[in-house]
């Protein structure tokens, strides 16, 4: 990878992957994110959980500016996102995202889905883009589906294609927005396994999920959000074993205690 750094980009090895300082986000009068301060280290795996409407999706969607914020600073890989559209484009190239509804391009084959951004954004030639796409489809264990259209695949397969599509761009950070919530139960594992592999390889990950097994196994830190605030941040052992806040305990009781 070339090192054409924008102005003020410091030595990247010691820089946090994501820094959020005093971030405030409103939808009209609804206060969606309340004074968020968060630093994510390189290679760190963060799991974000919380009840619906707590702002957890909004939080990670701010990292690649699918949501604009009204106040505060967001710095991703040394690039200040909140300082203009050029920076936003640059950050998006280096941040991969996986959505709850997959959002594959239905009019393109699986292979084309993976090649498109390589060719259009990175300017890579077709042959090389195809080789890269096939390599990542291999990695998510569906190389044989390359010529099919998304609608011909199962949900779990589609989500693995979506992961491969994001990985093709060689991202520095991966965002996962409830990647298993739209899946049939028997397909959750294949997607989680793919994410666990990715985590082992050292990818920086921010994952919104209700899969607490995944959080225990993979997360360096778990964030609990409620009503737009970060209520609690802790390592998984402490988070699940000894949550400090009442709201966290209530939430954990609701999703685990049947």
């Amino acid at each position: 990878m070339s090192n054409t750094s924008p102005e003020g980009r410091a030595d990247s090895a010691h820089m946090p992957a994501v820094t959020m300082e005093g971030v405030e986000k409103y939808y009209g009068t609804f206060h969606a994110l309340k004074h968020i301060d968060l630093t994510v280290a390189r290679g760190e795996k963060i799991v974000v959980c919380g009840p619906s409407g707590s702002g957890k999706s909004t939080l990670i969607r701010c990292v690649n500016q699918l949501e604009a914020v009204q106040e505060g600073r967001i710095v991703v890989d040394g690039i200040e996102l909140t300082a203009g559209p050029k920076n936003v484009e640059q950050v998006r190239r280096d941040v991969g995202m996986v959505f709850q509804q997959f959002n594959l391009f239905p009019h393109m084959t699986v292979l084309r889905n993976c090649m498109l951004a390589l060719m259009k954004v990175r300017g890579i030639a077709r042959d090389e883009a195809e080789a890269t796409a096939r390599r990542f489809l291999e990695r998510v264990k569906i190389p044989e589906q390359a010529e099919k259209y998304p609608a011909q695949l199962s949900g779990g397969q589609q989500q693995r294609v979506a992961i491969a599509r994001a990985l093709c761009m060689n991202p520095k950070i991966m965002l996962f927005d409830e990647p298993t919530s739209a899946l049939d139960p028997e397909m959750v594992k294949e997607v989680l396994d793919t994410m666990i592999d990715l985590a082992r390889e050292g990818m920086t990950m921010m994952v919104v999920t209700h899969e607490m097994g995944f959080a225990r196994q993979v997360a360096d830190r778990v964030i609990f959000m409620d009503r737009g605030e970060i209520v609690e941040i802790a390592g998984p052992t402490e988070f699940f074993g000894n949550p400090r806040h009442e709201r966290t305990r209530t939430f954990l009781g609701q999703i685990t205690g049947h």
Binding site: L66, V95, G96, F105, L116, A117, K120
Partner: peptide
Amino acid sequence: GQSEASWALGLGYVDRMKSI
């Protein structure tokens, strides 16, 4: 979601419209 996926991949306006 189609536009969001395009943005997330870093596609610009012209490519997003033309290809997606």
